[in-house]
Design a protein around this nucleic acid. Structure first.
Ligand SMILES: [Mn+2]
Ligand SMILES: [Mn+2]
Ligand SMILES: [Zn+2]
Ligand SMILES: [Zn+2]
Lengths: 158, 158
DNA sequence: TGAAAAAATGCAACTCGGTTGCAAAAATGC
DNA sequence: GCATTTTTGCAACCGAGTTGCATTTTTTCA
């Protein structure tokens, strides 16, 4: 009696791709797998390293193209950190959501929760489309590391 | 009878530099002059072009270093646009202010006015420092250009 | 089926914003 | 003056992202 196995990340990734009716290619599946497993947004570099570490290195350009495609499909979105590097994460259901960038480790998180749409007054003739909000500060990991001295330091996650 | 001449941008720039008690170098003065005259934030490239056009080309590295220095002094601040290019503008007195990035021409403006502090809930352990807000949409110039057809098109300002 | 068309991949060379190292030239301190 | 610090200039470099083009894979459809 096999208990119904929990869906693997590979399954989840494949399902996401089927849902948007496009070809399920190994590259797309693997990128989605990595993003499903991530707790923070991932840079191109960190994705490439993670893939290489798992024994299936990506071609650089293919990875860029897969990320562009996933973004175009609305499965993934990206934010540029203050280091001008784009970081990618799964599009979460909250249509508009804010981001958090840790000024210590540089990791970037999607925040969930209501963001009070700031009532900003625009100059005459300006039309607003979308508002991006990024909170800067210390993430939980870095706060803990600073509080508990000589603990094992958090790594930047590139 | 000379009427008291209005302070030139050069004067204004020099005064700003004196106020923060640092050496007034020609490069710093010229960068500040350009920023004083700008109606939107300027990229490194546009500053370099503007300087070259006025007959006093900057060395690339010197310009980067002056911008870093001015930013460190708090006289100038920079924002990275969605094209991952930093754009610089004079620090305006409003401590926290939002920005506007035009999705048509790419120009970036500092908005003035109260930005309703969005009540964002952070995950446990996260500490907020500063909140960056960027509004995306069409600037006045681009809206006008779209409305009045075949008008002279606004240039991107790089 | 099995060719033809379309989409995805791999590789090299390239662009471009930004940095680093180091030496020459000003500016500053005494 | 002369030593020390700061600023400038140049060249080489770095890393994120793009482009062109040839090869492979997948899809379409007669
Ligand atoms: Mn997000
Ligand atoms: Mn601003
Ligand atoms: Zn952190
Ligand atoms: Zn515009």
């Amino acid at each position: 009696m096999q208990a119904a196995p929990a869906p693997t990340r590979h399954d989840q990734a494949t399902r996401l791709l089927h849902q948007c009716g496009a070809t399920v290619t190994p590259a797309r599946v693997r990128v989605l797998q990595l993003l499903l497993a991530a707790d923070a947004a991932m840079s191109h570099q960190s994705l490439q390293q993670a893939a290489a570490a798992s024994g299936h290195p990506f071609d650089k350009v293919t990875l860029y193209r897969v990320l562009d495609w996933l973004t175009g499909q609305g499965l993934v979105h990206s934010v540029a950190g203050h280091d001008r590097v784009r970081r990618f994460s799964l599009m979460n259901p909250h249509h508009a959501h804010a981001h958090f960038e840790c000024s210590v480790c540089g990791r970037l998180f999607c925040l969930r929760g209501s963001l009070a749409s700031a009532a900003l007054e625009l100059p005459p003739g300006f039309a607003s489309d979308r508002v991006d909000i990024t909170v800067h500060g210390r993430c939980a990991g870095c706060t803990a590391a600073a509080t508990a001295p000589r603990s094992r330091g958090k790594d930047p996650g590139v």
